[in-house]
Write a protein that binds this DNA or RNA. Structure first.
Length: 263
DNA sequence: AGTACCACCTGACGGC
DNA sequence: TGCCGTCAGGTGGTAC
């Protein structure tokens, strides 16, 4: 789930539940997602509260009062859950931050594909990991500059995290469906006004998904995501949703709405 | 540079 | 019901 809109919901969740409470301890349930040593993580967080949040693309940063930041990446199955210590710990909790009010914040990840680490400066972290500008922060001029210099398939271009951060497999499909562009079409064939339209659609899709809490069940029926299954009926026409493969990723399109260009 | 494919890791799901 | 193959929304590395 965790693409830009999902992580934005996590950020708001952390903002609501995890700030301004002293961290009394860290519980390590599984080490495989840790990119920083346990002692460094504990040293950076324990005894201080989180005082702020930041998000770039699919990355969430939580600022500890002292100065370090906790960096979270959720992989394919990550999420956050704030819970009362007297209740059941969430299943698949891998990393638990305990607060002084007998509540904790669990980093949950079924497949353990995420990352947990410490940085003293998110900007350094972002440049060091070659992460592009956030898809919702990016202005039209920058989007145009990036996309007009790229080659190859449009879906791949949208998902290139080193150029534009936050769009993954699902929302790239959604954006291209709403824009009526076949995901394999060549980015270089789009005219400036088509790129402008793609840019606007990208923003609208991301913002609307956030508005609905990034819950696929809550999205309007006209979204591909509400019909993201092979053989489903296209919400825009009489077509049938089809599954294809791009770079090994399942990709859903309506073959009637999204026509391939002629190479 | 772009694309295809494998690996990471574990569980959910559908078919038999 | 139970076993088994396939697939899953992320990233990173390889080879071409």
């Amino acid at each position: 789930m965790p693409e830009l809109p999902d992580v934005e919901i996590f950020r708001r969740y952390a903002e609501k539940y995890a700030l301004n409470k002293e961290i009394t301890g860290i519980e390590y349930k599984d080490d495989s997602m840790l990119e920083s040593g346990k002692s460094k993580i504990t040293r950076s967080l324990k005894g201080e509260p989180f005082v702020g949040t930041r998000r770039l693309g699919k990355y969430l940063f939580l600022k500890s009062k002292s100065k370090n930041w906790l960096v979270l990446h959720f992989g394919m199955t990550g999420q956050l859950k704030y819970f009362d210590n007297s209740s059941q710990e969430p299943e698949y909790s891998r990393f638990i931050i305990q607060f002084d009010n007998h509540h904790s914040l669990a980093c949950i990840s079924r497949r353990k594909l995420g990352k947990i680490e410490i940085t003293d400066d998110p900007d350094d972290y972002i440049s060091g990991n070659e992460l592009g500008q956030d898809a919702l922060e990016m202005e039209w001029g920058e989007f145009y500059e990036i996309m007009s210099s790229k080659k190859g398939g449009i879906k791949n271009a949208l998902m290139d995290q080193s150029k534009i951060s936050g769009i993954g497999n699902v929302y790239s499909d959604e954006i291209l469906f709403q824009e009526r562009i076949h995901p394999k079409n060549n980015i270089g064939k789009l005219e400036k006004k088509q790129l402008r339209s793609l840019y606007e659609t990208m923003r609208e899709v991301l913002k609307e998904v956030i508005k609905h809490g990034a819950d696929p069940e809550n999205l309007p029926d006209r979204f591909l995501l509400s019909n993201r299954k092979e053989g489903a009926k296209c919400p825009e026409c009489n077509g049938t949703i089809q599954k294809i493969t791009i770079n090994g990723r399942g990709t859903y399109i309506c073959p009637d709405c999204q026509k391939p260009d002629n190479k």
